[in-house]
């Protein structure tokens, strides 16, 4: 009995000491960011590519920042739910959101009256998922030039499939190329990039606008052929595939499918700086690089200032094309 009592006392003593030291440690830390768990909010349900990026980054970032990083899925309204959540969150750096062109699309469409670009802090660009043009392996087109030549000779004969209606990311990407090449084709919209790939596999369209990760395996099994990449440099995995510029079409390649991070407006500068440092470290890890290469993405690596400019540019392109396509005035 006595033994037990002593043990309990000892235990209590140790616990109280631990608590004291913990208090002592946390007091100065109150002002130092980060000291609480960081929440990363995703606008899709778990399992999508954006969710995957969020979870990968959260996992790698945890030991770097020394606090836990939690991923939370708030799907709804193709990003509207998450945007509203981020907009009303405290700008303390503990609530971040993953973002894609969906959110920019909302800012120009659905939520035009609710939010502006300046209502958010644009933090960092995590990755770029470049657009590509892909055809069935049995197709007569071996190069982008051949496709363009044929389309020029037969206006309105070629069917190009891709995700989304007029004004969607893939459609604008195709329009940027078509505009430069001076061709007119039939855009055939699909409900997802995967559906468009299915259509090109089944030969229901002549070409498709897609992303590398979506077609990589079919390229490996020689069922599909990639004609060009909308980027400044060739992709490491496909050294033989030319960029649009190399294929003869010098287009503005700043339009890309991208994924990055953002937060509510008014985040303190030092918090933004710390987050950027942490994210830069994340992007430099082997684990992150491995994730990028297995999912066939290009590194983003833009810090806050550059990223904000990038977002502005994307916004301008979106607005331009919305006008050209007659979606908005």
């Amino acid at each position: 009995m006595k033994m037990n009592k002593r043990l309990i006392l000892c235990g209590l003593l140790i616990i109280s000491m631990l608590m004291l030291s913990a208090c002592g440690a946390s007091k100065p830390a109150e002002k130092v960011y980060p000291s609480e768990p960081i929440k990363i909010v995703i606008h899709t349900s778990a399992g999508g590519p954006t969710d995957l990026m969020g979870r990968t980054v959260a996992q790698i970032m945890e030991p770097i920042v020394g606090v836990s990083c939690v991923v939370e899925n708030r799907p709804g309204g193709s990003g509207a739910t998450q945007m509203a959540y981020i907009a009303q969150a405290a700008p303390d750096g503990y609530t971040l959101g993953c973002m894609t062109p969906s959110q920019l699309g909302l800012l120009n469409g659905n939520l035009k009256d609710q939010f502006k670009l300046t209502d958010f802090t644009w933090l960092s660009l995590g990755q770029i998922d470049p657009y590509i043009v892909v055809v069935n392996a049995k197709s007569q087109f071996k190069t982008l030039q051949e496709l363009v030549d044929y389309a020029k000779a037969n206006p309105g004969k070629i069917n190009v499939g891709g995700y989304g209606s007029a004004g969607a990311g893939h459609n604008i990407a195709w329009n940027i190329l078509a505009d430069k090449a001076g061709i007119k084709v039939n855009w055939t919209p699909y409900e997802s990039t995967g559906d468009a790939v299915t259509a090109i596999l089944g030969n229901h369209v002549d070409a498709a606008n897609s992303n590398p990760g979506q077609v990589a395996q079919f390229v490996e099994t020689k069922e599909l052929r990639v004609l060009g990449v909308m980027a400044n440099t060739r992709l490491a995995e496909w050294p033989d595939v030319p960029t649009y510029k190399e294929a003869g079409f010098d287009v503005d390649t700043s339009w890309a499918q991208f994924r990055g991070f953002y937060g509510p407006k008014g985040m303190p500068e030092d918090v933004v700086k710390k987050l950027n440092e942490a994210l830069t470290k994340v992007y430099a890890t082997d684990k992150y690089k491995e994730y990028l290469s297995t999912s066939q993405m290009m590194p983003g690596g833009m810090a806050a200032k550059e990223y904000a400019e990038f977002i502005n540019k994307q916004d301008t392109i979106t607005k331009d094309w919305y006008k050209k396509l007659g979606i908005s005035k």
């Binding site: 399992g47 069922e223 297995t294």
Partner: peptide, 25 residues
């Protein structure tokens, strides 16, 4: 590697999280 339904599409995501590439290979 093509989803036959909405649920299958999410299963593709689950496979990718495991580091597996769903597809003909």
């Amino acid at each position: 590697g093509i989803p036959g339904s909405a649920s299958a599409a999410i299963l593709i995501g689950a496979l990718t999280i495991q580091g597996l590439q769903p597809g003909p290979l």
